[in-house]
Design a binder for these strands. Structure first.
Lengths: 333, 333
DNA sequence: TTGAAAGCGCTAACAA
DNA sequence: TTGTTAGCGCTTTCAA
């Protein structure tokens, strides 16, 4: 391993000059800099990150914690965060929590040691736990809003309103909400907007569930929706909606003639089944960018010792707005 | 930040004793150790990783590089690696290369600075490039075999043989291979086993493509397969197979009555469409474990300065064997 | 069983 | 514009 001293002696300067040439090139004579850079290059010098971190007090790493890597609704989020940080000089740690709040807390603590900041996606932790971690390291919450911790979330309202209007226009007057994890932030959001939308348009809304937010969760949901005598269902997510579709197909119920289905997320599978699924598409990559940008901002703010003022809670950004994607699982009643 | 010295003075011992109590408890008096541990705990002491890395010369991090996080065939791999390292004390860096060899090389170089070892999944890099990176850091290749670099790969042969036998038993005598990325390691493997299997059983095999290994790549493939007058297609992967299925459905061709379809991977979507897809299921989580275990092994070998002998190239492990999953897209001709 | 001291590779005052 | 010096927090000889 070539150290900075090796480069220094090769270039006939001191270690500090090498350090400056590399990190603050404007502080060093052009000719000297050229020579140093040339030597560093020739010797294949790679700065030792540990040493750098030690003296600087930062790692240039960030951590990303998600409930389930294999969940197709999160994959683009991970990809978006990766892409965002790819050329920032930050490394990205990833951890999966298996949807478990305790694992999430453990991983967050572990990552706090290795990274300068964390993005918690769809966090399952109780607010207190989140705050306690946020007290130790820079945290950004994605897809969950909090008053005390910087956070960004999707704006489901426009998409859900469109879905309700769509169903209403098709003549549906009695619908079901196929609920996901009862008390999760996402589920509460979705229920809230849906309830409001249906009330505003005079649609009777029945809540069914909770169902496991998976394909197979949709099987049970389908049967119960049929029994509840509704003409359309609004699923917590696409996975449930897809399960409903499959189950109805198996039971010989026609979609959308006998039952309309709306999902949320627009996972890739939604457009691969037939009939393709009508769904509330969610700009998950935009969420990833927003969360990443927010974290990077705060990290930079931490460096320049400007007292990092809490960012003003912003109104829902238009790029985070969900919108209805009408495909073929919704039709007139 | 509580440092080791703070703990030391709280416990009335020296820093070295604290270090020992933490890392080599057997070297310190039981009572002293208890006191040190108690103080460390009380002060909320967290060792500084940078300092540790600096003196130890290792980071306790590993890197994982995949072509595409959002590809459902890789997601379980990432998840498997995460899960494997979760309780080993290693952090896992993740990078996505957008299927690009240059990006892959760049990310690998960047990660080599931050991690002790790397897992390269389905690497797109030319062999030379891989070796040059393997010369600088510990690397394990997943889903690609190499003579010079430690590697593990799935064993497609059993699954493909089963698929060929299955198709033969159903009466198919003229089939098409819908090829993926022409010169990728995966594609060559699949073609090789398929060609051999078909030859052995007297099935005429036509190669079509290459197709983009995506859902929409399957559209074109479907039309060309129809024109080629085959009774069954063997797709490079499930995504293509799913696209074929959708396209045939749109063209009014019945599956499996008029055309049988076999995919590879067993992505979740394969079981969500109707008819559900017959596919060669691939134990991707087992691959993840195998690759992780191999990397961890080599990392430990590097530490104990036993001259790390190259591990003997092992025969394909049974847990890495693919197998046919017969669902409903294959039937008698 | 413990402590003192040296040093991992780097950056940042401070001095020149 | 450059060099000297003093650490960053930890582990590990070496001596006691």
């Amino acid at each position: 391993m070539t150290s900075i001293r090796a480069v220094a002696s090769a270039a006939g300067v001191s270690a500090s000059t090498v350090s400056r040439a590399l990190n603050n090139p404007e502080l060093v004579n052009a000719e000297t800099r050229r020579r140093v850079l040339e030597c560093a290059d020739r010797l294949g010098y790679r700065p030792n990150r540990a040493a750098r971190s030690l003296v600087l007090g930062r790692t240039s790493n960030v951590g990303l914690i998600v409930p389930d890597i294999a969940n197709p609704a999160f994959a683009p989020f991970i990809k978006g965060v990766e892409a965002y940080f790819r050329d920032t000089g930050y490394g990205v740690f990833l951890a999966d929590t298996d949807e478990d709040a305790d694992t999430e807390a453990r991983m967050a603590e572990a990552m706090a040691e290795r990274a300068d900041g964390l993005i918690l996606c769809a966090s399952r932790m109780p607010g207190m736990r989140v705050r306690s971690i946020a007290a130790k390291t820079t945290v950004v919450l994605a897809n969950r809003l909090s008053r005390s911790v910087p956070s960004v979330a999707l704006d489901l309202k426009p998409g859900i309103d469109q879905a309700v209007t769509h169903l209403h226009a098709l003549g549906h007057r009695r619908c079901a909400f196929l609920s996901g994890p009862r008390d999760s932030w996402s589920n509460r959001q979705r229920r809230k907007h849906l309830t409001a939308g249906c009330a505003a348009r005079g649609i009777e809304l029945i809540e069914l569930g909770p169902y496991e937010p998976q394909f197979t969760g949709g099987y049970r949901a389908a049967d119960e929706a049929l029994a509840a005598d509704v003409t359309a269902v609004f699923a917590y997510n696409d996975l449930i909606a897809l399960g409903v579709l499959a189950r109805l197909h198996a039971r010989g119920v026609r979609v959308p003639e006998d039952m309309s289905i709306v999902g949320v997320d627009d996972v890739p599978t939604a457009s691969m089944v037939s009939p393709p699924l009508t769904t509330v598409a969610v700009p998950i990559q935009a969420l990833a960018r927003a969360a990443s940008a927010m974290l990077l901002d705060r990290l930079r703010a931490d460096r320049s010792d400007t007292v990092a003022a809490a960012p003003p809670p912003r109104p829902p950004a238009p790029e985070l707005a969900a919108r209805l994607l009408i495909r073929s699982t919704t039709g007139p009643t």
